[in-house]
Write a protein that binds this DNA or RNA. Structure first.
Length: 224
DNA sequence: GCATTAACCACAG
DNA sequence: CTGTGGTTAATGC
C-alpha cells in the first residue's frame, strides 16, 4: 500500500481527487522502481493495471514484421497503457526503462471508478489521451514525408525541448535505436550527425549532444 | 543520362 | 557500438 495523499508527483488528473479517493487510490496501487533496461510492460501480456510513470525515461516499442519498432520516448510524469488497458485485453506494446524509473501500477477497476465518478479527473485523462493522439499524427506525417536530416533534426529538438529541456544532453539511445525511432538506418544517423556537426549546427561527443544553432535545426526539421 | 537520397554491406577501431 | 567508404536501387529533373 502506498500513501498517495502526500505524494508530490501527482498527475494533473490525480490532483483532482479528494482525500477519500486518494486513500482508495493508495490502497489499490503499488510503486515499483526500475533500472535502465528493465521491462515495465510486456507486449501481449494481460494487463489490469494502468501504469503511471512518476519519473524517469521510458522507451515505448512494439514488435513489427521483421523487428522491434521504437514508437516513442516518454518522460515521467506520464501515464502509460491507458489505451491498451481500456481498448484491449492485452498490451499492444512494450515499455522499457532507459533510465532509473519509478512507476505506480494502479488497479484498473479503481481507475475506472474515478473516471466514471469524477468528471474533472476524467477530463484530465482525456486531455492526456488527446495530446497523445495528436502526437501520433504528427509523428506519422514526419515519418512519411521528411527526409533523413529532417527526421533527425526533429528528434534532436524533441530530446532537447521536451525530454531534457536543455540545449545540451546525453542521448539515451544508441545510433541504431535513434535510427529505429526515426525510421532510418544507423548509418544514416551517423552521417547526418557528423554532417550537422561539420556545419556547426550541433556538437557531438559520442552520446553527448549540444545544439549550437537551434534556428538552423528548426529550419531543417520544418522543411523536412 | 545525371544527381540526389538512402539502404545494405563490409570493415576498422 | 560507431564511423566511413563502396555499391546499388529508386526517384526526379
Amino acid at each position: 500500500m502506498h500513501i498517495c495523499q502526500y505524494c508530490n508527483k501527482k498527475s494533473f488528473a490525480t490532483k483532482k481527487l479528494d482525500q477519500i479517493e486518494l486513500e482508495k487510490l493508495g490502497n489499490n496501487c503499488n510503486q515499483v522502481t526500475f533500472l535502465k533496461g528493465d521491462r515495465i510492460m510486456i507486449q501481449d501480456a494481460l494487463s489490469h493495471n494502468i501504469v503511471f510513470i512518476e519519473g524517469g525515461l521510458v522507451k515505448i516499442h512494439a514488435s513489427g514484421p521483421e523487428k522491434e519498432q521504437i514508437l516513442k520516448i516518454v518522460k515521467g510524469p506520464s501515464y502509460l497503457g491507458i489505451p491498451t488497458v481500456i481498448g484491449s485485453k492485452t498490451n499492444k506494446f512494450s515499455a522499457t526503462a532507459i533510465s532509473k524509473t519509478t512507476a505506480c501500477f494502479i488497479d484498473f477497476e479503481v481507475f475506472k471508478d474515478f473516471i466514471i465518478q469524477n468528471g474533472e479527473f476524467a477530463y484530465e485523462i482525456i486531455i492526456d489521451l488527446c495530446k497523445n493522439e495528436l502526437f501520433s499524427y504528427k509523428k506519422c506525417i514526419n515519418q512519411a514525408q521528411k527526409q533523413g536530416p529532417g527526421k533527425i533534426a526533429e528528434a534532436l529538438l524533441y530530446f532537447s525541448e521536451i525530454i531534457f529541456e536543455n540545449s545540451s544532453f546525453n542521448l539515451p539511445l544508441t545510433r541504431y535505436e535513434l535510427g529505429n525511432l526515426t525510421c532510418t538506418s544507423r548509418e544514416t544517423v551517423s552521417r547526418i550527425l557528423s554532417d550537422f556537426s561539420n556545419n556547426k549546427i550541433i556538437e557531438v561527443n559520442s552520446k553527448k549532444i549540444s545544439i549550437l544553432n537551434k534556428e538552423q535545426l528548426e529550419i531543417i526539421s520544418k522543411k523536412g
